[in-house]
Every structure is written in structure tokens, then in C-alpha cells.
Design a protein around this nucleic acid. Structure first.
Lengths: 178, 178
DNA sequence: TCTAGCATGTAAACAGTTACATGATTGC
DNA sequence: GCAATCATGTAACTGTTTACATGCTAGA
């Protein structure tokens, strides 16, 4: 249950309404976590019921501004420090790779080339973001830069891997070569 | 909904019962996708209702062996070729990285070092798997090798990134340095 | 006035996890 | 006979998505 912690994290350095938080998800956090409206409002209500956040003020249009409580900060802290690990890796793409044998050689190559292209596109997109945050001095800049670098390295890795994999298929004649 | 396609994929080169499929998930596919018993049995029933698989034979203890139908193979094929992309990246770890500012410098460093260690451990584990599959000549060996290489590159990348990130914290004094 | 954007919520469905429940068969 | 393993299923709960529903308010 990380959505809860994402909300707590966002409330650390600002108060915000559900609406504000949704925009933050679509903005700064988009490459890392996503959430939709239903989920955000529901979770905020639950967080308020549990006392991890409070309704700090109510504005026009029924706007409710939420603020983090001490309990909420404590919960966030323990989640951050917590030595979990039980992440059941689930990769849509690797699952497809596993069944590449069902495709013809050409189809399999096209699949991998497409993957390489998607990774390259993402890399370009992240480079652009890197340029833009280099100038401004927003909060989350330090942590954002760490996450960004992860994305850059990951997309580069994926592109290299996909190109390597195309070579592998060529060498072996490929799975189910027609 | 990839579980459905994982099942179809596993049924391509063998017939299997729900029980067999669960073991396949825990075995060959464990690093790529996971599924539990309830899910497998439920999905198989649904697949049979839709005609994507059939009950090929019934054995002792109520064992039902499922086989892929032509419709099932067609569905698998179109899933493989399908140019999706809309994968909402959700990274538990990067989410934590984003909120690293809540932790003290030492805690943040410990977090990243732990990440580096986990990645290194995974790399070691995958190296061992690579040795073991080099010898035997099972089906899925070609595709499995592609997925394995992805895992090796990814774990190496994660370890390098985490170590780099520790250096970044040191340079900047770190978020919320105490 | 009217549109765009602010703002919150509910309902239904799907996906996935955990726990419980049952019973047959094989091999020792 | 007993234990291990084979084999299937149900119920309850959590998380996520999609769609629907409602209404206010600021500004052109």
C-alpha cells in the first residue's frame, strides 16, 4: 500500500487538497507513481479517519486542505526506513519475451526493435526534464535528480539490451524462425 | 490482464493442470511474473468458459489437464504483437527515493547502501542461474536467456546507481542532513 | 452568460492476496 | 496406517481502474 505513503510524502512540505494532490501525481511524481482521483479522495478520507492527516482548512467549493500530523510523519518515516524487500517483480515486457517463440523471426525482431525505440524515446524525454530542472531550484530537486538519474540509466540499459537481444535472435536463427 | 496471457503462453508447448501451472510460475517464470493458486484456478475456469483453452483430459484426484485452443493461440499472438505501451510505471523504491528528505543523512545513506546490496545479491543469484541453464537444453532456453540477461544488466545498473547516489548525498551534504 | 477549471464524491468491475476448506493418492 | 504431495476450490479483503454524477466559481 504505497499510495497512502505517497500522499503522506507529498504533504510533508505543503498542505494540499485532493485536487492538488492529483495534480502533483500527474506532475512531479508521474514517472514514479500514478494515482487517479477516486483513489486519492478515498485514501485521504481513510488517512483522516486514522489521524495520519487532518483537515487543516475548508475553502470555497467544498475544498478541504489536508495537513500531515505527527502520526502521519512517523508512519512515513517508518515506511521509508522499513527493510522490506518482498517485491514480486512483475514485468509485462519480460513475460512477452518469454513467449517470443510463438512469433516468427521477423515479428520477434520487430518487437525488440520497438522496445529499443520506446526506451530511446524515454531517454530523450528524461534528458529534456534534466535540462529543465537544472535551472530551477524547486524542493524535491535533490531527490528528484536521484530518481531522474535512475530513469536515465534504466532507459539506456533497456535500449542496449533490446539491441543486443536482436543480435541474439539473428545469431541463433531466432525462435520459431519461419 | 497479463496472467491470462502467461497461462496461455505456458500452455503452448505442454498440456498442464492448474497445479502444474502453479509450479511453472514458481519455477521458470518466478523472476518475471508470479501468481497464486486462487488466481490460476479462477483464470483457467474463465479461459475454458471463453474457449481459449479446453479440458483435454481428466485424471485422478479431479485433475484437469488444460490444452490451448486455436483461439487461445491467436489471442496470445495478438497480445505479443500488440503495440501497447501504456505501462504506468510504479516503483516502490523510487517513490521512497523521492521522499528521502524526510530521513537523516545517515538513514538515507543506509537506505541506498541496502538497495545496492539487494541488487548485488540478485545479480549473484542470476549469475548462478545462468551457470545452471548453460548446461541443460530445455525449451524456453533461448527466451529465458534473453530475460536473464535483462535481469543481469538491470541488477548491475541498480547497484551502480545506488552507489552513485550515495556519493551524491555525500557531495551535497544530503537531504535533511542532521 | 457561458465556459473552463476547481472540487468532491459514489458505484461497479477487475486484479491480486490471504486464508480457509476439502479430499484423493502414492509411497513408505 | 500415515505423511507428503497432488489437486481443486471458496470467501473475504485490498488495491486499482473506469465511469458516472454533481455542483461551484472566476474570468472572458
Amino acid at each position: 500500500m504505497s499510495l497512502r505513503h505517497a500522499l503522506l510524502g507529498l504533504l510533508v512540505d505543503r498542505r494540499a487538497s485532493g485536487y492538488d494532490l492529483m495534480k502533483l501525481f500527474d506532475g512531479s511524481l508521474a514517472n514514479v507513481w500514478s494515482a487517479n482521483q477516486s483513489q486519492v479522495y478515498g485514501e485521504l478520507k481513510r488517512l483522516a479517519d486514522t489521524g495520519l492527516v487532518t483537515v487543516a482548512s475548508e475553502g470555497p467549493r467544498g475544498r478541504k486542505e489536508y495537513a500531515l500530523t505527527d502520526e502521519g510523519l512517523a508512519e512515513l518515516h517508518s515506511w521509508l526506513v522499513d527493510t522490506e524487500s518482498g517485491q514480486a517483480t512483475r514485468s509485462d515486457v519480460l513475460l512477452r519475451v518469454f513467449f517470443l517463440g510463438v512469433l516468427s523471426h521477423d515479428e520477434a525482431v520487430a518487437f525488440l526493435r520497438h522496445r529499443a525505440q520506446l526506451a530511446a524515446d524515454e531517454h530523450t524525454k528524461l534528458e529534456a526534464i534534466k535540462e529543465s530542472i537544472a535551472s530551477d531550484d524547486s524542493p524535491l530537486a535533490v531527490e528528484g535528480a536521484l530518481a531522474l538519474e535512475f530513469g536515465l540509466r534504466f532507459s539506456a540499459m533497456r535500449e542496449e539490451w533490446a539491441n543486443w537481444a536482436v543480435g541474439q535472435l539473428r545469431d541463433t536463427g531466432g525462435p520459431a524462425a519461419s
